[in-house]
């Protein structure tokens, strides 16, 4: 094997590792996270004020207790998303996913209206990193009746 090819390979290795290291450092230590967020929390949405009206936004937070209003006849759902401090009222149509309930994390996609209600076109339910067995005496079938229980 000629010396020049093995020298080229070493150069390629050093170059590749340098590029890889720089890219990783940029992403992990840079503040990309501040500019690129998957969702806003209610506090950020409210702080944006009128700027948020009309734009497509993802809003994430927890479904506040005693705020779920489900109208099965018109298939309309209203609830409040909270981050513990700020709150936003959300309205959407269609049956929510089975896991939807009070106190669970949700991410909703939609737009803020002038009336101050977040009109959601897509409701996503977040599962925590806890995987637990059902409480004693609950059957699996009951888990699927959440919509009826709302």
């Amino acid at each position: 094997m000629s010396n020049s090819t093995s020298k080229n390979r070493r150069l390629a290795l050093v170059g590749a590792l340098a590029v890889a290291g720089a890219a990783l450092a940029f992403i992990s230590f840079g503040n990309i996270g501040e500019n690129l967020v998957y969702y806003w929390d209610p506090g950020q949405l409210i702080a944006a004020g009128d700027k948020s009206i009309g734009a497509t936004i993802r809003l994430g937070g927890v479904v506040k207790k005693d705020t779920i209003d489900w109208d099965p006849d018109r298939s309309e759902l209203a609830f409040t998303v909270s981050d513990g401090v700020a709150e936003v009222n959300v309205h959407c149509t269609g049956a929510p996913p089975q896991m939807f309930r009070e106190g669970i994390g949700v991410v909703v996609e939609g737009t803020m209206t002038k009336a101050g209600i977040f009109e959601s076109s897509r409701l996503m339910v977040k599962h925590s990193n806890e995987y637990k067995a059902p409480e004693e005496g609950t059957s699996v079938e009951e888990l699927y009746k959440t919509v009826e229980a709302l």
Binding site: L24, S28, V107, M124, N129, E130
Partner: peptide, 24 residues
């Protein structure tokens, strides 16, 4: 490593790391 750490570094819909403490 970015894929692995993404749930720690950024807001995601995907669940965060689980551990034997968080799993039955």
């Amino acid at each position: 490593p970015i894929v692995y750490m993404s749930v720690k570094w950024w807001r995601t819909l995907h669940q965060n790391f689980s551990s034997p403490e968080t799993v039955d």
